[in-house]
Structures are given as structure tokens and as C-alpha cells.
């Protein structure tokens, strides 16, 4: 029993090359929905600071048109996305009753931090 289970386990692939392939444009498949690590993957931190009133926001990570990760904050704090790659887009939706500052710790288009006055937070950042 233990033997057959061992056989069923897939062989680990030689690695780097396969990981590198994830950056190429590819058709949407079931595997596309999984955020795979690439050599140039990075952990990205999005810091939300609400002042003069409460705020809430949701950050959504898109890659090749597919939603990869989504996290929310209901007060000032950080959201961490691991394995973020060049060309990924972080969309930010939210609302603040005072002011809000959204700061991403990597180069983006447009540049961050971006400040929002009281109202809706609707933003989108392309990871460089």
C-alpha cells in the first residue's frame, strides 16, 4: 500500500526552466489560476494609512487577466502579496472618511504612494 502511494507521487521536475515558463504569455488553463513562483517573483507589500476617519479597502492581484489573490483591510494596515511578477496589476477598491494613503513597496505605474481625500478609493497599479 505504502509502495503504491510512493509510486503515485509525481517526480519532482528539474525546476528552474519550468518555473521560468510561467512568465510567458499562455492560454488560460486551470493551472493559470495558481500563483507559481518565478525567479523574478517578489513579495509586495501594500500599506494603507487612513487618517482623520475610518476607511476600508480591498486589494486584488491580477495576472494575465486572472484573479490571483485578494485581501482586505478594515483599518490602517498592510496587505502582502507573495510571488508578484512584472506585468501583474494590483487593483484597489475602498472608501475612506478622512484621508487615505496607499503605498506599494515596489516600482509601479503610476507611482505610489498615492493620496486619496475623503471618498471612494478606486485605483490600479501595474507592477514594473
Amino acid at each position: 500500500m505504502a509502495k503504491s502511494a510512493k509510486k503515485a507521487k509525481p517526480k519532482p521536475k528539474p525546476s528552474i526552466k519550468t518555473k521560468g515558463e510561467t512568465v510567458k504569455p499562455q492560454a488560460l488553463t486551470a493551472s493559470s489560476l495558481v500563483a507559481t513562483e518565478a525567479p523574478h517573483s517578489q513579495q509586495v507589500n501594500i500599506a494603507f494609512t487612513f487618517t482623520g476617519g475610518l476607511g476600508q479597502a480591498t486589494a486584488v492581484l491580477f495576472r494575465r487577466g486572472v484573479l490571483i489573490n485578494m485581501q482586505s483591510v478594515s483599518n490602517s494596515g498592510n496587505i502582502n502579496f507573495s510571488n508578484v511578477q512584472t506585468g501583474d496589476v494590483v487593483a484597489v477598491n475602498g472608501v475612506c472618511a478622512g484621508k487615505a494613503v496607499v503605498a506599494i513597496n515596489t516600482d509601479t505605474v503610476p507611482d505610489s504612494p498615492e493620496e486619496f481625500t475623503a471618498g471612494l478609493i478606486i485605483a490600479s497599479y501595474l507592477i514594473k
Binding site: V23, V60, G65, T86, G87, D88, V89, A91
Partner: peptide, 11 residues
Amino acid sequence: SANISNIGAPG
């Protein structure tokens, strides 16, 4: 945002 992430080559 999803649409832009799917435009051309990354970056």
C-alpha cells in the same frame, strides 16, 4: 485592471 494585466508582454 484584469484587462490591462493581460495586454501584451508583461511590462
